[in-house]
């Protein structure tokens, strides 16, 4: 492929320094040598178990890692290196985040203001109303506070915050946490639509089944390492999957027999 990827991540590692007991300090690597390419119009899902440091991937790309975390590796955006300075210019405009829950919204600010980033001109207001409309939300949602949103509304409000600026790269952190399968499919449909409009979408999720359904490619992530990168279609056939963990995951899916995952030891990986 000679197209330039929108996002190209090479050998990304993220680590934390922390105290393992009272007086011993250690570096804990949460992401090891991750490689990922995202092209225009593509939805890529990164699948990993809860607590596997998936969110940190989003935070690393957006340059918002906590102060005790550090990363190495190279990231580039549309062919240019994505430095901290560059991402500070791009985030919120070309690169946007769809956060995982309503707690990422200011509890004391009306939803409308938050969707349009507190900008109060007429154009932003119109754009916001269009966006609300696009996701089937009424105008009255603008006047609500985050605590008044139902789960499904909150999801759509969070997505609305992302599409206000016609982004080129959308990073969705766990967009379907514990919601009903139909609702989840609908949410993922929204991301498909965003990709079809010309953006690249990176979905970070723990749900392999939904990932296969919604994404073009799926990256399986375990204990910080990339185990498998495959086209979503490859998941229809167990033999096309290379890693035993992925195969185990695959077998655990309902339509494939629902067999339990045998415990995987670090040594098997």
């Amino acid at each position: 492929m000679d197209r330039i990827p929108i996002l190209d991540i090479q050998n990304l590692s993220v680590s934390f320094s922390q105290y393992v007991d009272m007086f011993r300090k250690n570096d804990l690597q949460v992401i090891k040598d991750l490689n990922l390419k995202l092209f225009e119009g593509e939805v890529v899902a990164v699948v990993g178990a809860s607590g596997s440091g998936k969110s940190l991937l989003a935070h690393a790309i957006l340059g918002i890692l906590p102060y005790n975390a550090s990363f190495s590796g190279r990231m580039s955006y549309c062919g240019e290196p994505l430095t901290q300075m560059r991402i500070e210019q791009l985030r919120g405009k070309e690169i946007v985040l769809v956060p995982q829950s309503v707690s990422y919204l200011d509890p004391l600010m009306k939803v409308g203001f938050q969707i349009r980033k507190s900008v109060n001109d007429k154009r932003s207001k119109e754009k916001m109303l269009q966006t609300l409309n696009r996701y089937g939300l009424g105008e009255e949602v603008e006047k609500l506070y985050p605590f008044e949103l139902s789960g499904g509304m909150a999801r759509r409000v969070l997505i609305s915050t992302a599409v206000m600026d016609s982004p080129r790269l959308v990073i969705a952190d766990e967009p379907t946490p514990g919601i009903h399968i139909d609702a989840a499919k609908q949410v993922l449909g929204h991301f498909r639509k965003i990709a079809d409009d010309g953006a690249a979408v990176l979905i970070i999720t723990h749900d392999l089944e939904l990932a296969i359904e919604a994404a073009d490619r799926v990256v399986v992530f375990y204990a910080g390492m990339t185990l498998e990168e495959a086209q979503a279609s490859d998941f229809s056939d167990e033999s096309k999957l290379s890693h035993p963990y992925t195969r185990a995951l695959w077998r655990a899916m309902p339509q494939n027999g629902f067999r339990a995952i045998e415990s995987i030891k670090e040594a098997d990986l």
Partner: peptide, 21 residues
């Protein structure tokens, strides 16, 4: 807080974050 983290991720600058949130 997470909402300030999100505001940073949306490109809000220090002063804007203070004013808005």
């Amino acid at each position: 807080s997470e909402y300030v983290l999100f505001a940073v991720a949306r490109g809000e600058k220090r002063w804007e974050i203070f004013r808005h949130h």
